[in-house]
Design a protein around this nucleic acid. Sequence first.
RNA 1: GGGCGCAUAGCUCAGUCGGUUCAGAGCAUCUGCCUUACAAGCAGAGGGUCGGCGGUUCGAAUCCGUCUGCGCCCACCA
Length: 881
Amino acid sequence: MELPARYDHSQVEDKWYAYWLKHRFFHSEPDERQPYTIVIPPPNVTGILHMGHVLNNTLNDVLIRKARMDGKNACWVPGTDHASIATENKVVARLREQGIRKEDLTREEFLAHAWQWKEEHGGIILKQLRKLGASCDWDRTRFTMEPALSEAVINTFVYFYKKGWIYKGVRMVNWDPVGLTAVSDEEVVHKDTQSHFYHLKYYISDGNGRPTDQYLVIATTRPETIMADAAICVNPADERHHWLRGKKVLIPLINREIPVIEDDYVEMDFGTGCLKVTPAHDVHDYEIGLRHNLPVLEIIDEHGRLNEKACILVGEDRFVAREKIVGMLQEAGNLLKIEDYISPVGYSERTDAVIEPKLSAQWFLKMDQLAKMALETVESGRTRFVPERYVNTYRHWMENARDWCISRQLWWGQRIPAYYLPDGQIVVESTPEAALKAAQAINPALTAADLRQDEDVLDTWFSSWLWPISVFDPQMPGHPEHKPNRDLAYYYPTNDLVTGPDIIFFWVARMIMAGEEFMGREPFSNVYFTGIVRDKLGRKMSKTLGNSPDPLVLIEKYGADAVRIGMLLCSSAGNDILYDESQIEQGRNFCAKIWNAFRLIQGWKVDESLQASAANVAGVKWFRARLSAAVETVEDHYGKFRISDALMTIYKLFWDEFCSWYLEIVKPAFGEAIDRATYDATLGFFEALIKLIHPVMPFITEELWQAMAQRKEGETILFQPSPKADAPDPALVAAFDLVQQSVMGIRAVRQQKGIAPKEPLTLQVKGDFPQEFLPVVGKLANVSARVVEAFEGASGVPFVVGTVEFFLPIAVNVADEIAKIEKDLDYQRKFLAGVRAKLSNEKFVAHAPEAVLANERKKEADALSRIESYEKQLNALKTSK
RNA sequence: GGGCGCAUAGCUCAGUCGGUUCAGAGCAUCUGCCUUACAAGCAGAGGGUCGGCGGUUCGAAUCCGUCUGCGCCCACCA
């Protein structure tokens, strides 16, 4: 088979992906092999591939392909997440473009639009993952809102409700006035925001609702909420304010009378020590209100606008109202001063709207028991975090977990299966029929028409947390009596989860909770946290900055293998990734290198009558040992999730050791043939190498594996066993190191003296040099090497590697050589002095372990022998002069 | 405010148990090569007071303290 001179990924990648799909190589069914399972972190169904996905899914794919080659039954379950807020926002935006307002649609009409949108745009990302080479079991593709998985979510809700862990409560929630829904604490992002501290005078009431000339001063960042004030609060220990006891004050502008109360919550040395209490619009104020039985007056509506209860500025947006009321306060003489102030403000993660604390009825799931269980899972090591430090973060959150607000005021999602009876009682059942039955048990006269289902849907994470279970057996969650089906029993718990640390609470922690609750054990053994992909300048990649490249464009340009390498090269666990296109170029260059190495080998003619040369025999012997050592290192790296280290080990093994050294040793001269033994060994090495590379570069390795022999339809590199390390031979590897050093020494001399590599030289070797490798040195350095007792010839360049001395008899400038040797000699003497200082230190000799001591003695001996050798050379040179 | 982490060559990062000639790798740079696999390449070279200071130790990039500069997470002192 004739190979093109250049590797063209575009001719290769689609071809083999189609081949893999055709033979369903990625598909897994339970069998007698050991399973290795990964569930994909489901991307948003409407999402498109970005660099973060590339990193994450490349790592997943490396792990799954490695496991497959290790003989495990590898199963990677793909799928998507319905992402209720994000998707609903996109659908609302598109409808708006078409002139349709969500408010004008019924729930059913809206959902019809949403599903249509999902059918059109959904799952694009899964198609894109194929371009990357992701070896997912596509037959198992799941969607969190598909019927079976939705059923699992509903059953879970019913299960926890009946267990008493789900309750409905009026709470202060994080309200998103743009998304028009409550969001969980985890979905609120706090950002330091430049704002102002307004100091306002509140006049003391004369008892009849008229101001006296006495006043107190409060400091607030939210003057637009004063109309909702229910009290002014001071710390009881604050003597400055004792005169206010029992007094009433008037809210500026509207002159409503409110009491002055005392509570420890107020910090005496913050602001003015007087706090305006606004129970409807501040979490802490709400709690103070509860303690002091204050009325709750809500003046901001769901859109963030002032309502009629505000009396003034009705209908104005909260921020506009803030501007206007400041002017009004100023005019009325209530504004004392304005300070610049930076305060943390909560923003909605999804819509970036400023979160409004809002009192509303929401559904909650109790976290105490679940958090306790899930903490134990990680503390006990049943689930291991990589890097380990995330355990601290995890523990802190678990110990402080607050109840999870699981209701969302949206339509896109699983609707809460709570049904209200006309008298306000609630029944919770998984179907309307069951709900009716339950309702009739309370009141037999009720009909289906009397029941009203809760309007809210469930938080998306309330379905994602079931993912490692529900993708295999959606009947399991919520049915403790159910026995896991064959898939779940076989694949659960999964092995590794690769995800970003940003969703450690959203998703990882909650999957562990669900796993413990429904399966009685952890959902995965290891969690590998990736870093965040940043640009060269360290900025997070984002659409608005426009610094995020389109992975598909990169794949098109460089090939998927190159993109994968580019991402992996710089990805140590838990550290952020500074992405730079040059890394992908490096990946592409590696493809070219592999390709060309194969073209070289493939072009060799074998002469069956030829005996292997001494150099070839030695080369094969060395590389076998070298490969073995590298395989061991690679295995070790994989075992510790040091994926980039594993890659770098493989990269250097192939490029440096195999190409630059091994192939140069065995390469026949132009037009000449190679012996059979060396050829077969070389081909064997090459096959082992591409197997080693396959998990990181699946396409080119399949192409070459197919090209290197007659393969039958249905054969693939995917299931070839990973190369195994056989008897390691460190001594041999070390001996070859000496060979490399000496070859490099000769090349350096050639470079310095301007002697072309083509020009043959002779080399004299003195000392303990491994004889069998002399021919290797001869070939690589183009020298005829021989061992001598003493160097012959007056003029030449000596050099030393370890304790072996070399001499290249060539014409040299004696003065230059003398200067050079004197410099080396000087260095060696200082080195010796350093070693001797150590050895003469009694404490060192007393404390240091024997191995360290022995090494220092060896260093001393080596230095001595080198000095002796240099001195001799120096003398020889000087006398020749 | 609390917690976690980072700082090593121009850039991105390794450095595992404190000890091997330990100060490394890749990229970039410089020099010489269009050598018949590969210029997306080959060969060679230069480049760092391991952020500062102090401590422990026979010995510190590595352990401890502290300072400085970054990053992340948690936290609504209005």
